[in-house]
């Protein structure tokens, strides 16, 4: 196995931890609410999943714990920003801080515990394809879940009334209200669901890819996930590409290190953030016009 293949495999494995929160953030932003607390929801999801996995001995059940923990913080954020009209960016960051504090307080007990992480499932037949097989079809269950989610989201957004309702809420909540729906409720549910996905993303780290829990273990992945959505101009397929791109950058830096290539570890560590920034710069100008209108309004209303 050479370095490039290793980076790609790791890119999908680690990229999934960014992809799931990004998809969740996409759902929320399409409804008109940005969640900078995605980082906190991931962190909570990582601990929630790990705690349940330690208690029940099942990493699969842990995923449910991750969803619940992430969704809980998403609920706080969406309640504050939708029903209490708080500034979305401030509310998101406060939720992140809350999650940061709570996970370090309640997580100390789990630092020395160990778990059996999610098993790697090789898809029969597909995983035998040279190159593509090991890269795409030899992963834990959450990776396959993320594939399914991308497809499901594309279909739901394009073909169903539900998708229309979500997008309409993100563009013109007043109109959705006049039509007899409850835009605030749509936003609350969208953001909470999205935060649940962020929680699964955290679970992908704690009970999957990394297989361990430590304080602040998401180290900014949640913020990268938010940036990926902007980078992808709110399109699910592009979110997938973006997330894997950063997954590969992450994986490549550890592969480089493993091969003893003399690059400073901390400079490598900064690569994903730099890559995100550069990607944002590259697409920002034309992507902006694609933004859901209610989101743009919420972000420019500074009173």
């Amino acid at each position: 196995m050479n370095g490039i293949e290793q980076s790609l495999i790791g890119g999908v494995e680690g990229g999934t931890a960014i992809l799931l929160p990004s998809l969740g953030e996409l759902i929320g932003e399409l409804s008109g609410v940005i969640n900078l607390g995605t980082e906190g929801c991931m962190l909570a999801g990582a601990l929630g999943a790990y705690a349940v996995a330690v208690t029940t001995g099942s990493a699969l059940l842990g995923i449910l714990g991750g969803i619940a923990a992430g969704a809980f913080f998403g609920l706080i954020h969406s309640y504050l920003s939708v029903y209490r009209k708080a500034d979305q960016l401030a509310s998101g960051l406060v939720v992140w801080f809350l999650a940061l504090g709570l996970t370090s307080v309640f997580g100390t007990g789990y630092v020395n515990d160990s778990i059996t992480p999610l098993t790697i499932i090789s898809i029969p037949g597909l995983s035998k394809i040279p190159w593509i097989g090991p890269i795409l079809f030899k992963h834990d269950i959450l990776v396959y879940l993320s594939y399914a989610l991308v497809v499901a989201l594309v279909v739901i957004l394009k073909k169903t009334r539900l998708g229309l309702l979500l997008r309409a809420t993100g563009e013109r909540p007043e109109v959705v209200g006049v039509a007899g729906n409850r835009p605030a409720l749509v936003q609350l549910i969208a953001v909470t669901l999205g935060a649940g996905l962020a929680g699964i993303g955290g679970a992908q780290l704690s009970v999957g890819y990394v297989g361990n829990w430590f304080n602040d273990m998401t180290s900014g992945y949640g913020f990268i996930a938010v940036a990926v959505v902007l980078f992808a101009s709110w399109k699910p397929a592009r979110v997938m590409v973006g997330a894997y791109l950063f997954g590969v950058v992450l994986a490549a830096s550890s592969v480089l290190q493993a091969h003893g290539i003399a690059v400073n570890q901390y400079l490598l560590d900064s690569l994903p953030y730099l890559a995100t920034l550069i990607a944002l710069i590259a697409v920002s100008k034309k992507g902006g016009s694609n933004a859901p209108e209610a989101l743009t309004r919420a972000l420019t209303d500074t009173t």
Binding site: L80, R84, K85, F97, G101, S104, V105, T108
Partner: peptide, 25 residues
Amino acid sequence: LDGSIVDVLLALIVMAPLFLSKTRK
């Protein structure tokens, strides 16, 4: 207890004015 417990208090305190945003507006 982990010293980061104070982060929880900081977040909760800032939540108070955020919670009242609607009333203030």
